[in-house]
């Protein structure tokens, strides 16, 4: 068995164990699942299938370097396996779950690795080599190129960081959500949620057909919610009116109980 086959199988099994044994959890678990899950979906199946699907007789085209050719097919095949495998999982009663995805992708990867070890050594070796390798097509970048790449990554990271930071700058004057929703058995749900940037004090009045029934004054911070269940007898018209202290604009909801 080739060394990289053994390593790939070991990585696949390790990823599967992590994914099968961990669900939810804190930041450390999430990082672990990302480190295990992304390769299992995007790299390992394609890496394992490559020698099978690109055998000796149908190697890469004459002008294409091996690195680009391999780098293109590994994620490409992995994505295709996920798309086609999802259809198979959909036919099962379990469907597309964490366990079924992990089982499928691990099984495909290990089966492909096992099959590739059965290939004659000569075919495998020829399959990774084209008739002619263009100059420089298969070499890894070295020296100053690594520095340029690091600088490009840093600048790109800054660009994305700026974009993410600025996503919160979009101007919004803030608003409050007021609702009054009939519920079962002659009751209704009354609620307010603040979406202002800071704390605001609200004045809420509930009126019946003719007069005020109840009123509340309360302060909510950004994202906080205030709720009450109120009586809404059949046939009674209820109106709730919400104002912010010091402002005239009001929000109104009304239901017929």
């Amino acid at each position: 068995m080739r060394r990289d086959t053994t390593v790939t199988a070991a990585v696949t099994v390790a990823a599967a164990i992590v994914l099968l044994l961990t669900a939810g959890g804190g930041a450390a678990i999430t990082v672990l699942r990302i480190l295990a899950g992304l390769p299992l979906i995007l790299i390992l199946p394609g890496y394992a299938l490559g020698p099978l699907m690109l055998p000796a007789g149908s190697g890469r085209p004459t002008h294409i370097g091996p690195l680009l050719w391999r780098a293109m097919w590994v994620p490409g095949l992995s994505l295709a396996v996920t798309v086609l495998g999802g259809l198979v999982l959909n036919l099962t009663s379990v469907g597309l779950t964490r366990v079924s995805w992990t089982t499928l992708l691990t099984a495909v990867t290990l089966a492909a690795l096992a099959a590739s070890t059965c290939l004659p050594a000569r075919r495998s070796a020829k399959g990774t080599r084209g008739p002619r390798t263009p100059s420089g097509g298969g070499s890894w970048p070295t020296g100053p190129l690594v520095g340029y790449a690091a600088a490009a990554l840093a600048i790109s990271g800054a660009a994305v960081g700026l974009a993410v930071a600025s996503a919160g700058w979009e101007h919004s004057p803030g608003f409050a959500q007021l609702w009054l929703v009939p519920a079962a058995s002659g009751e209704a749900g009354l609620g307010v949620r603040s979406a202002y940037s800071g704390a605001e004090t609200f004045h809420l009045v509930l009126r019946g057909d003719t007069n005020a029934l109840l009123s509340w004054d309360f302060t909510l911070g950004s994202g906080q919610t205030w709720r009450r269940t109120i009586s809404a007898p059949v046939g009674q018209h209820l109106t709730a009116r919400l104002t912010i202290t010091g402002e005239s604009a009001a929000e109104t909801v009304a239901i017929n109980g």
Partner: peptide, 17 residues
């Protein structure tokens, strides 16, 4: 045509992203 959603769903399900 669920190809995109299958792959994305797999990433969400396995990684928790």
């Amino acid at each position: 045509y669920p190809g995109l959603e299958e792959v994305t769903g797999a990433v969400v399900t396995l990684t928790g992203l």
